[in-house]
Nucleic acid binder design. Sequence first.
RNA 1: GGAGAGGUGGCUGAGUGGCCGAAAGCGCCUGAUUCGAAAUCAGGUUUGGGCGCAAGUCCAACGUGGGUUCGACUCCCACCCUCUCCUCCA
Length: 421
Amino acid sequence: MIDIRLLREKPDEVRQAYERLGAPVDLAGVTAADARLRDLKNESQTLQAEQNRISKEIGRAAPGPAREEAKAQGTALKERIEQLAAALAAAEAGLDELLLDLPNLPHPSVPVGKDETENQVVREEGTRRQYDFAPKPHWDLGTALDIIDFERGVKISGSRFYVLKSWGARLQRALITFMLDLHTEKHGYVEIYPPYMVRRECLVGTGNLPKFGANLYRDAEEDFWFIPTAEVPVTNLYRDEILDGAKLPIRHVAFTACFRREQMAAGRDTRGIKRGHQFDKVELVKFVRPETSMDELTALLSDAEDVLKALEIPYRVVQMCTGDLSFSAMAKLDLELWAPGCNEWLEVSSCSNFGDFQARRARIRFKEGKDKARFVHTLNGSGLALPRTLIGVLETYQRADGRIDVPTALRPYLGGATTLG
RNA sequence: GGAGAGGUGGCUGAGUGGCCGAAAGCGCCUGAUUCGAAAUCAGGUUUGGGCGCAAGUCCAACGUGGGUUCGACUCCCACCCUCUCCUCCA
């Protein structure tokens, strides 16, 4: 949620920011709704003040005609206030609806662009290995080694589900533990194991609701929502709290399964394990002071990169242009690893700075000494998404005989094995 | 799932219709005392919003949402959550 006061005080700045975003946004409607709400509020508050005054008088007055007269006045006021209250509630709900649907404002450093074709590759890291054979995609490798079972996955759960088996399951487990150890031991993140089902408010806090409910699974009976990413429960850990400024920055890492409806065109990305309704992810989440958030974004990105560096998988860093920024993000950088088998760059991490957008929705503030409580800035990024990292390992480290070499960093997590299959 | 108890400020905890945005204690902040500290004493210490250059002032909030009333922390209803016991399970 953006700061309504910013819109009131510097409407041009806000309008220009949305123009850079290329998002059609009805700011005039918001401004009008805001003005109307404040008018109603003023009127209602004046009446309430009057009513409070009369009620106090009644409390002090001795029984008699004067007291009865005051009561009648109170009744009249009450009726007027009730009429206003209905209009007020409607105005408030209307403004809220408009505000919750407004995307975040892009950071000035974000390059302007219309869509993903105008994202900028910032740099490429690592050198792509040369193969003296034609590298195979992971669906062929996985099937041949009997470590990914696509057919049975579809049998038990339908399309976009698969089963990891034997070394496939173990390799994923090794990657998870390796990533958690790296971030907790080397990067100073505190590990969290959160619930995978959350209340609706949490999704509003992170910006998934009300706008993006179509991509979420939920249990209708209890109104539990399945998390699409650990970002949701972990960010909401501190919802409605005022944190001690001395404790910032707070860094958390969480491994969870993620659930997404992914109502995309049939036929796209259907092969392999690149995109499914359920996938595992190690997620990094930070709560920081506003002044530091862009620096913290750089650090977050670097923490995620360290996973790929340690695994010795080549990758590139891509800066999202304004047109490809997600709804809640103020700035976003992706990490894409090179998958030689499918012959494409695969997004394994998306590192975002949300500014106070989520903090405002979830009311996460911090306070220092006598200063007024301020909203924190929140950031998060994958560190990393498992299925695609698994693809990266399988395809990068494949050998001519179809077996897979184990990256050095991973060997301690696989019982010392140097080759799988 | 069944029975009971309960949700008040940073914490403990009082408050059963107006004098309560809320006693008291703890914690914290400022000042006095002290070479300094402890102890002691005095004062201060919730959040959000409207109006205002500001001092300030008004409105709202005692789990949440409704209701009764001129007036609700207090009475009524529903829901959520916590605790205890039983049941059930990993």
